[in-house]
Amino acid sequence: MASRYGTLRDIPLEEEVVPGTMLCAGCGGALLVRIFEKMLGPGAITINAAGCMSLLSVFPYTPFKSSWFYIAMASAPAAAQGVRDALDILIDRKRIEREDDLKVLVLTGDGAASGIGLQATSGAIHRGLDFYYLAYDNEGYSNTGFQASESSPFASSTKTTPPTDLAEGSILQKKDLFEIWRAHKPPYVATISPAYIGDMMHKIEKAGRMSGPKLFIAHSPCPPGWGIDSDKVIRIARLAVETGIWPLKEAINGEVTHTIIHKKRRPVEEYLGTQERFAHLFRPARNERIIRQMQQNTDDYWNAVLK
């Protein structure tokens, strides 16, 4: 089916999230939420697990034009289930009109998505719940000041994985949430990036034609957590794709396709070098072993994809 979003200029102009939030200047997650809500349009409910974005609305102010619901960190997908089921019941029994229906969006950070909320998410996907899930993956517990989450990348430093002589930041690998979600065989799961808004719009549009779980994991640069200048957020997100660290892909009923492929990938250190959380890999001395290992991990991934 042809896309309504041929170029960036086709972006919906109506803002569903108005200015005045408490989020940091240059928040990658804020941009993702803005674009995602534009694509859903009015008549959506955002069910927001505790995290940075749950401070979008703080009494008595809300930036959302449509409905929003703050839920505990572990159970946003369960609230989505309750709302979706109740709307279906009310429509079935003609107690509300079809126009009163809401698109249900679960919005969580990577901490909730990969850790404390994974069980509730697995349950909702398993039940075939008709909902969108946007996980803004800023690779740490940003809302509490950036501690390591299960989504923090290998060798990145956080407040709870400081770089010391013993370990290069976190010694654990980033949890592969895409594959965990994909294993449930949902109709749609994709990765997106704020630097590739066109790709993102196509994916949301495509998912919108499907019923059931429609899941998105968004690379979400975090200026204070990653130690980057706020104006570099898009550049760094773009570098993540160009170096192959953040593959843009989708899986329809479990079948994976990569949507953006850079045949000539930039070296990963171009991405790593832009961020304070990887600074210990370059200063005081260059840590060749770790940098090479990270390059190798990325190459291995893409060699398997492209073979």
Binding site: G20, M22, Y61, P63, F64, K65, S66, S67
Partner: peptide, 19 residues
């Protein structure tokens, strides 16, 4: 009940002096 029915009212809160 702690809810906001004046949706989209955060515009009242200018953040423009942050920088």
């Amino acid at each position: 009940t702690c809810s906001i029915t004046a949706t989209g009212n955060s515009m009242l809160r200018e953040r423009g002096r942050w920088s």
